[in-house]
Design a protein around this nucleic acid. Structure first.
Lengths: 219, 219, 219, 219
DNA sequence: AATGAATGAGAGTTCATTCAT
DNA sequence: TATGAATGAACTCTCATTCAT
């Protein structure tokens, strides 16, 4: 329906709408975000909105895709430089938390997307998992990850860790303890990142599996 | 404001409103759920709603609290019967998935609560984590969980695993592959539950000796 | 429709409804007064209201009549004791202001009655005017009031003086200057009552009529 | 909040809403006037209302201010042309009655404002009194009004005369005796205007000598 | 005589979207 | 390309009144 902007001016307008939307959605959620607020913030008239987007939902979807592209980029870039899988994990989580800190929009928007645009929500998670699972499989073949792991389930599980820890220590913390202690740019206290590493490490690392209680008692 | 019903008839009406709301919220999300839909489903007039609830939000909060109580009950009951921590974890997750399968409402409602009622959302997660972390700490003292773990971070992380795996294999699966393969009442394919156990086991279980990342790299 | 109470208990309930209504109407006006508020204040159930009154409007009308009876009583009693017409006027105004101070309800209710119950409003003013005009006519015959006055028009005019002065210095003053200066129980500062006397005196008193400008200049 | 219309079309729409509102408010009073009625009468959609007014109350306030401006204009213009104070009074009252006849809205709206918008009500009366009292004080200095009068109290009192006489002979008369007798465009029968003049004249005019009540009684 | 649950019409207000300019 | 006026359906919530107990 809506055609891409034909002029530089049009492109600018469109971009400012997207940017405005990111902030307003993040602040108010999808339902409470009105097109008026977006256009007001973007400094354009209400009607202009429909020159570039079919609907509020259309813009929402585009925003989700856009942010999705950006997180994935941030994470893969961070982990690409790592020497081994486990430090890659740590770097990836760290990048994810940092991104979350910088773009709370993603987070808040995603969680609100459940009913708004299930399709966009699925696409978002699927895309992240796809790359993640692939990376795990590769690491498995390289012997860095325990071989009995299903990369797919693992990817979802680890993503879950990131999601809730991010929610708790990045999103909720804002304005609370103001990261008095170390938070080396990671968006999350160092201690928490350490713990996450520990957990991930244990979860997927290739190593003597945990001792069962009976063995332990027997020792 | 709103007082509790004074007659049996009132109590019945109130209960049917709550039940109707659970379904409608689950189906449509908070924003798209209208009071009319709820009252229609409950078979009462619109005004009756406000006899028992101050507002749509008020009902929402109550519903969250109610569901929260019920998941926690389901999980703690399931894990209480387990002989050791790891099987307790498995039983807990299993109960959580089963509850999610039976009450998709909780899930969908919670995710929608981010903007609707942050207070209710916090309360929900905090309550779950509290019990969870306590359990982990106790297991730690009993030597069943690695001692260098921060129970709080761990609780959030594990809850994250449950959340995303639940979303992927319980919620999304519904109506898709209709659990062709084994799903022994757990709400989630057996294979997935196995994998989750594996991951959780590795993440929190005690190992001998705990290999740190540096050592490993050095090796 | 509604029958008078058959028992003492019923009479008490009815009376407490009336009394509650007076306060609530005075505080909120007719439109914003809800039957619930009245019954709550009276300490009875909502349904009880309709045992004694056909409707909110019915109660309102009755209240207007009741208050009307009371002001007229207060005024006539006060002016009856006066030795002459002019001091009777002063006493009447004084009583009116005092009544207004004690029963702001009348005032506020009356002013709100324009659209609520024109009939009740008419009846209220007509009844007051009737007695007032009659008194003026009698005083005229006694030679205490100028003979060229139409007692009817005069009665309305004087009532207008009472109404606006009462509004300004009784109703609006509440909580403002807290009658720092003399206010000998009249509900209105002495100074204001003096001025009103002066005005009324001049308006209806039998005396050399005001000089016209031409005469004055000629003098 | 609401911004003034930016186009001629918008200005027209806004004006027609105001005009419609004046009539509907006058006919039904504030409480029974619904936004729908106003928009229907103005021939616009319901939502359009909120393009120009924040709320029903907002429009009400604006209307009161507008009408207030207009009465004061009508009265001051009429009395400005008068040769002396007393004929100025007569002209002013006449203008007031005429305005009331033409714009019953003001009257009815004002009386309804007691609970709706006390602020607007105060403003309305205060503005009128201010000009009135000033005029009286000036006339006092010019020797046309008795010197022992407090112009403020007098202004309120005279306004009261206008208010009740206007209510009785302008508003209530409509549709009753349809001014069978003389009503030279004044909105009120000539006889009534004469009587009002008489009263006002006596109330504020200078006399020689001013008889105090005590003297009178003593005589 | 009294209760309190239930009703349902109607209120004010918002907002995504369309359209004329 | 951009504007801003206009739409009208939909929403949440209130309340006078009725009715079964």
């Amino acid at each position: 329906m809506t055609e891409p902007p034909r002029t530089a001016r049009g492109a600018r307008t469109r971009a400012s709408l997207l940017e405005a939307a990111e902030h307003v959605f993040a602040e108010l959620g999808y339902a409470d975000t009105s097109v008026v607020r977006i256009t007001e913030r973007a400094g354009v008239a209400q009607g202009t909105f429909y020159l570039y987007f079919d609907s509020k939902l259309d813009l929402f979807d585009e925003l989700v895709d856009d942010l999705n592209r950006r997180v994935r980029h941030a994470m893969s870039e961070a982990s690409a430089a790592a020497p081994d899988r486990l430090s890659a994990e740590r770097a990836g989580f760290r990048a994810f938390f940092a991104f979350t800190a910088e773009h709370p929009a993603l987070y808040r928007i995603i969680r609100a997307a459940e009913f708004v645009s299930p399709r966009a929500l699925h696409r978002h998670y699927d895309r992240i998992v796809e790359g993640y699972a692939e990376g795990l499989a590769e690491a498995q073949r390289a012997g860095e990850v325990r071989p009995d792991l299903d990369p797919d389930v693992a990817a979802w599980a680890l993503m879950g860790i990131g999601e809730l820890v991010g929610m708790r220590w990045v999103l909720w913390e804002r304005g609370t303890e103001s990261s008095a202690e170390g938070d080396a740019g990671g968006g999350v206290p160092d201690h928490v990142l350490d713990q996450v590493s520990l957990l991930v490490d244990g979860a997927i690392g290739r190593r003597t599996p945990s001792v069962t209680r009976s063995e332990e008692n027997g020792a």
